[in-house]
Each structure stands twice: as structure tokens, then as C-alpha cells.
């Protein structure tokens, strides 16, 4: 009896196997293939990341040795072959600094704009945005600074954004908005500050009071002329006090 049922079981298993065996084997083969494939893909990604990291390091070395051409070469290899890794964005930040040091502000702006466009809301995106704004301000494009910074919630970068925004508004002659932006920048993180508060306070004090009160385009013009005239008065006084000073006075911003 026992023998019979064992034999029966064996027969059952055989028929089950003949029916489904191929599927089982097929399933296992597909499973193995997927795992092997996944692992290979993973290690390929890892290899790419390591290569990108090494290329980035050689870029940094070239920059440190002031070999801008070598740096450019490493950078463009990173951009073309490793765009999907973490390093091109960092390389662009490095190159932006190099370009600024060389007086190539438009190249710096392009590099930073690429980082902003690649991932606008990421930490690096916000960082690059804040730096791009500074370049634009230097390029005398305050309106573009306003367009770049004011629609975005800077989050942890809010104070840094606001300071540059205030500078831009001041350049545009919108002193009330400038004051508001500087004041917002003053509400900085207490435990890990991101702006120079005393400089900010100076910027606020530096805004012309009359223009703030009038807040009209005509008023602005008057204030500016008046300030320039005032500075010339002091200029002569300074020159009297300090013989070494050259007489060429810098115009007030």
C-alpha cells in the first residue's frame, strides 16, 4: 500500500514536471539572467562613477597648477562621456571660478546656467543660481537677477538670494524693494549663518533715505545727483588730509 502511494506520488510528480518543468527551468534562467544583468549594470555604473571622479580630480589638479587648457580638456571629457554622474556639475562650479578669475564672466555664467538648468531645485542647482546671479549683477543686468531669483523659493539659500536681490534692486533704483530684500536676508539661520550681517546692515544704511520716502523715478534721480555732488565735497576734504591720495575720485555706485 505504502509502495503504491509512493509510486503514485512519483508518477504525479513526473507528469507535473513533464508539464511544467520547462517553465520552472525557464523561470530560473530568466531570474539568473536578470540578476547577472542587474549586477553588471550596477558595476558598470560604479566604474563610470569612479572614472568620472578620477577625471574630476585631474581637473582639480590642472586648476591648482593654473593649466586652464588641461582643465578645459578634462571638463569637456567629463561633460561628453560622464554627463550622468555626479561630477559634471561639480566640474562646472570649478570652471566657473576659474573663468571668473580669468575675467571670462560670460563663460562663467554659461557654466553656472548649465548647472541651474540641469536640476533647478537640487542643492547644487540653488547654489549655482545664487552664483549666477552674482555674475549677472557684475554684468550690469540687474533685471535678469530679479527674474532669476525672485520667482524661486531659495529655502536654505534664501538669505544668500535676498542679499543679491537687494543689490539688484538698489541698482535698479527700487530702494524700497532693496531694503525689504536686505531685511529678509537678515533673518538668517542663527546657528549656521550664511550672510555677513554687518555688511548687510551697512547696505541697508547705505540706501538713500529721501529716495525711499519719495519712491518715485524722479526722486531717485535727484538723490543720485545729490549723492555724487556730496561725495565730491568730501573728496576734496580727503585729498587735503591725505597727500598720497590721487585726485581721481570714484563715482558713487
Amino acid at each position: 500500500m505504502e509502495d503504491l502511494s509512493e509510486k503514485e506520488q512519483l508518477d504525479q510528480m513526473r507528469s507535473w514536471w513533464s508539464e511544467y518543468g520547462n517553465y520552472v527551468i525557464g523561470g530560473i534562467v530568466i531570474g539568473i539572467a536578470l540578476i547577472v544583468g542587474f549586477n553588471q549594470w550596477g558595476s558598470r555604473v560604479k566604474t563610470q562613477q569612479v572614472e568620472a571622479s578620477e577625471l574630476y580630480e585631474s581637473l582639480r589638479e590642472a586648476v591648482a597648477a593654473d593649466k586652464t587648457d588641461d582643465a578645459d580638456e578634462s571638463a569637456s571629457e567629463l561633460f561628453s562621456k560622464y554627463e550622468n554622474t555626479a561630477y559634471p556639475a561639480k566640474a562646472r562650479l570649478v570652471m566657473a571660478r576659474v573663468y571668473m578669475d580669468k575675467g571670462r564672466d560670460q563663460d562663467a555664467a554659461d557654466a553656472l546656467r548649465a548647472v541651474v538648468d540641469a536640476d533647478p531645485d537640487s542643492e547644487l542647482g540653488l547654489l549655482a543660481r545664487s552664483r549666477l546671479a552674482k555674475v549677472l549683477l557684475y554684468q550690469e543686468k540687474p533685471q535678469e537677477v530679479v527674474d532669476l531669483l525672485s520667482p524661486v523659493d531659495g529655502q536654505a539659500f534664501t538669505s544668500r538670494f535676498s542679499e543679491t536681490l537687494g543689490d539688484a534692486y538698489a541698482e535698479l533704483g527700487e530702494f524700497a524693494k532693496a531694503k525689504e530684500a536686505f531685511s529678509r536676508a537678515m533673518e538668517d539661520s542663527a546657528s549656521s549663518p550664511t550672510v555677513d550681517r554687518s555688511l548687510l546692515q551697512m547696505k541697508i544704511n547705505d540706501l538713500p533715505e529721501i529716495a525711499l520716502a519719495v519712491a518715485s523715478p524722479e526722486g531717485d534721480g535727484t538723490a543720485d545727483d545729490a549723492t555724487v555732488a556730496a561725495s565730491e565735497v568730501v573728496e576734496s576734504a580727503v585729498s587735503e588730509n591725505d597727500e598720497e591720495t590721487e585726485s581721481g575720485a570714484e563715482k558713487v555706485e
Binding site: V94, A96, R97, M100, R131, L137, M202, D206
Partner: peptide
Amino acid sequence: QAVGATAFVTPYEYRRYLNLYGEQRQ
């Protein structure tokens, strides 16, 4: 380094800084 050592000071920023810190009043 990528974040902290890549910052720059534009000539505009620098001049403004000196304008303010070096301000003289009669």
C-alpha cells in the same frame, strides 16, 4: 571643496564691499 572652494567674488561685489567698509564721512 566642490561647494566651498569654488566660490568667487565678482569685481562688483568686491568694490561694493570696499565702498562700504572703507566709507569715509566728513
